[in-house]
């Protein structure tokens, strides 16, 4: 046990932090992979990512999946209009 504090104003204040819930990429069972040659940069995968784990800076670039945090829901694969996202089982 650490020492009991003597402060009268200890506040439950949290700071915005990426990965506040940890490296949620470890939750993933299936890994979405963007096939760059097929991608038409429509940004649908970026738009619908519930985790904000797909990064896009402009419409000229292929979006990038942040695997540290992608939970592998595969919504991106479902919404891709040109099947440019495939899924791979993690650990295979």
């Amino acid at each position: 046990m650490s020492e009991i504090p003597d402060n009268h104003l200890i506040l439950p204040i949290s700071k915005p932090t990426k990965g506040a819930g940890g490296k949620t990429g470890s939750w993933r069972v299936f890994r979405p992979v963007i096939l760059e040659d097929k991608c038409i940069k429509c940004m649908m995968c970026w738009m619908y990512c519930p985790e904000a784990a797909i990064e896009a800076h402009s419409r000229n670039e292929v979006p990038k999946i942040n695997y540290d945090y992608c939970k592998g829901c595969l919504v991106c694969k479902e919404v891709c209009p040109v099947s440019a996202i495939k899924s791979e089982r993690e650990g295979e």
């Binding site: 504090p5 402060n7 009268h8 949290s14 915005p16």
Partner: peptide, 23 residues
């Protein structure tokens, strides 16, 4: 930006509540 009052685990929670006693 900050958040006030999201979930705390027991030891941190206890410190927050104890500070009310100190006040």
């Amino acid at each position: 930006p900050f958040a006030y009052g999201n979930i705390l685990f027991p030891w941190d929670y206890a410190k927050v509540r104890l500070s009310i006693q100190r006040a």
